[in-house]
Design a protein around this nucleic acid. Sequence first.
DNA 1: GTTAGGG
DNA 2: CCCTAAC
Length: 696
Amino acid sequence: MELQKRLDYGFNGYQVPATPRATRSARKRVPFKKRVEDKRISAFDLLATVAGKLLLDKESTPVSSNTSSAEDKSKVEKNTVKEERRDGNQSSKLETCDQYSNDREFIISQLVSQTNDLRSCSFRKSPSLKNDTHFGLTSVVTTSDCSERSGVLKLMNGKIKNEMGSLPCKVETGPFLCGASGGRIKLEFENKGPIHEELDRTDKLSFREVADTCPLEDPVVVDGKPPLLVSSDSSGKTHSYGFNNHLGSFPGKRDDLKIVSRDDDEKSSGCTYLGPIKKPFRPTPLIGDRRIRKTMTSKYLKVAPRLNDVTLSNSDENLKSAYCDRSAYKRIRSERNYPFKKRKFLHYSSVSNSDGGISSEGISDSPEQSINGNASGVYPKMRGVKFRIKSFRVPELFIEIPESATIGSLKRTVMEAVTAILGGGLRIGVLLQGKKVRDDNKTLLQTGISRDNQMDALGFSLEPNPSQTFPSHCPGGSPLKFPCDTPLPLARYPATPGLVTRVTHDPSHEPHMHNLGNFVESDHDSAPSPTDMSLDKSTTDSKALVAVPAMSVEALDVVPAHRKSKRSEVVQRRIRRPFSVAEVEALVQAVEKLGTGRWRDVKLRAFDNAKHRTYVDLKDKWKTLVHTARISPQQRRGEPVPQELLDRVLTAHAYWSQQQAKQQLKQQQQPESCLLLYNSTVRASSRSDGGEKNFG
DNA sequence: GTTAGGG
DNA sequence: CCCTAAC
């Protein structure tokens, strides 16, 4: 009979509705049980702790320092406010920086603009980049705990490249956590030349030239201020979750920050050559819209070819590498762009999939490690374990900035790039005796980290955060393109007029082609590895999708899932990702077939690869689609959905609503026995084929 | 874990 | 998109 109805309806694409929930065996709702806090320390906790220590504000640092934490903090906030108020005023920004320079100082020793060279070399194959101006940056940044204030930043025609390989770090167990002694963070941006700057006793952030093999000219030394991370959020809440502020308040008195620019193409990983960016960025419309207001300084940095790629080598490899870097744009969002909320922290594998040389060194036992007297029942001898990370190396950074940009802007840009990296582009890997500890749930005790004899083998590494990678895909509607023509879902986010900066993380997560049918890209969350992903998709996806329209690139914008270093604390709201027309079409198609109320199936069917689209999202989208279809076109907002689709939405919605009503009616009328029979029949028919069987 | 709806 | 009640 059901079949007959369908035929009457005249649509053969719909399926028998799934058995209504109500008819399913009743499940008891288990009252929420408050979880008992587990005092055990898991690897994840450890990571969170360390990362938090490294990246977050100095609020958590001991007050024993000469510098008042509170004072610094207030200073930062003050500056923040001021900056925002004078938004756009360069001089005022400098002023702001000046204030801040009390603690840190930047010296730029060399600055070179090589727009032309770049254009003729690395960018030869990238027409879209022709007009870009680049400042190559090679720098070493060091912050240390002393009062000495000096630093040097040399700029060259390269860029701050963020090398996303696994990064080594040195860790020392010690009073770090308790602040007894200064913890240090050494971040390196290596530039081929193994320039390692030893941490000095400076109390500021300094940039120092490293292995600059490029011809430099017009050396410019500027005694500037540190690119204060500005919080443009006047609400004043920013500091509570914005990484920028945390960075701004980098415990200069205690921590050493070392960044060495690096020009290591070989490390750029196996990315494939990608052609010019075809997909134009979606204009960031609305100047003055929410984004602008909120992210004045939160620029989106992009990769820029490194100088060395251009001047030092003309080898294909270099060009290729450079190109890859160029194409591996990603958005790095400032953490403060996201409101945070108390919520369950996204669980993710904290250990990198990348096998890049990870190394850790220098972990030393802390004399005073232990003390957590409170022994839990499970772990009778619970001991505290303290770590002191002596140094970390930060991935490469690429920065592109207009010639006309001011030094102040440049500084800020660099700072922001670093901030972005630290804020969300990295994750921490834990190594024990050279091997990654992948299970975040293991306790230190279980892992053996708590044992003294293991301390020496413990290491941490900074690794690229897969979630920050840029997915790519090939728009199905367009002709098949060569890889090099794959549109890059890049986006430019001029933070301030005249200043365009972009940063990218390692190309190791290079965008890859997918089957046309694979219209929805995963956001790489917890992706095994770029390579695996590709393979995975090409095999898995192809079979699962049928004649699904390809989505437009914009739909695939990767929005880095920002991970708070501090677990269990605030987690930002997911970024809004408007559905593209292609997605809508896929959704409509799936719903037509599966009906409303089977969102999980819809998800599996049409959005299985779009990790960022949950079935709840799909359900919500359908809800809004129905609403949209009902309102007048004038009232609609956002990317217009073809009327044809909206019509289908209404049709399908009406149909399934009717089905639902009928079923409910039936359930009420049918005797129990019949109901059971009916249900079993329906289930069998609707699920015999994975729930996608069509009526004929 | 899913679904349905309100916010 | 989030949150949550009700499955």
